[in-house]
Amino acid sequence: MTERTARLRPWYLLSPALATITFLLVIPTCFILVYSFWLRTATGADQAGFYLSNWKEVLSDPFYRDILFSTLRIAAITTVICALTGYLPAYFIAMSESRHKSLMLLLVMLPFWISYIIRTMSWINILGTTGALNTLLIDLGIIDQPLSLLYNEPAVILGLVNFLLPFMVLNVYVSLEAIDRNLLDASRSLGASELQSFREVTLPLSLPGLAAGGLLCFVLSAGTYITPVILGGPRNAMFANLVFEAIITQLNWPLGSVLSILLLIVLGAIVILYNRLVGIGQFAKTFG
């Protein structure tokens, strides 16, 4: 193998992936960026050119800022709930000596076999006025009138947690599974209690997995569109809903492009921050 061939070999190997990313991600994003500087005319046709009016409108209008903050807040709450509720099953599976460990992991992944939309819509049958929960509570005599459990922010967060929890569990599980058990034995032999051993050894070593799961949950929930549409009320729109409305209802593709790029920038900044603090390599461990 000549030196030149050896030098170029990684690029040859990477070229299919790079070509895919270029054609399916970079070029479409560039199109969206170009579109964001166009203008939408009254007839709905787009006027090509370099206009900053859409950017000025989005950056100066508190409406977009408020919905963006609301989206980030919902994403943060969802992430925290996923972390709190996802750590326990991940810990249990990772520490289990059971021969059914693979089955337990399979159960965690089971929801992925059902369409996300179907899973989200199923909450209507559970939380609705005539749904399973209200019917049960009425039958048990706990309540007289059905509770309003749907079409509000908690319902949206519940739908998001339901969607994202497996991502968190799997990330944390991989992190816990990689911990050298000798470290736990060493901490116990040095006099640490089980709780101390967890707090001083297990938890710190599983934090990268928790962070990776958190990032994934945060980014996916911040970009969600369908959950607020199905489970939310009039005031529970998220940023992706604005993109949809700009492009679909208002036929204002340039404005929709600005909103898309803005969401990309905000979420990109969060990913960069994560990379600085934790390192993006944690994802490779989970998915590799």
Partner: peptide, 11 residues
């Protein structure tokens, strides 16, 4: 349509 989209979301 733009104004309605805002009002619908609480504005």
């Amino acid at each position: 349509s733009q104004k309605f989209d805002r009002i619908e979301k609480g504005y």
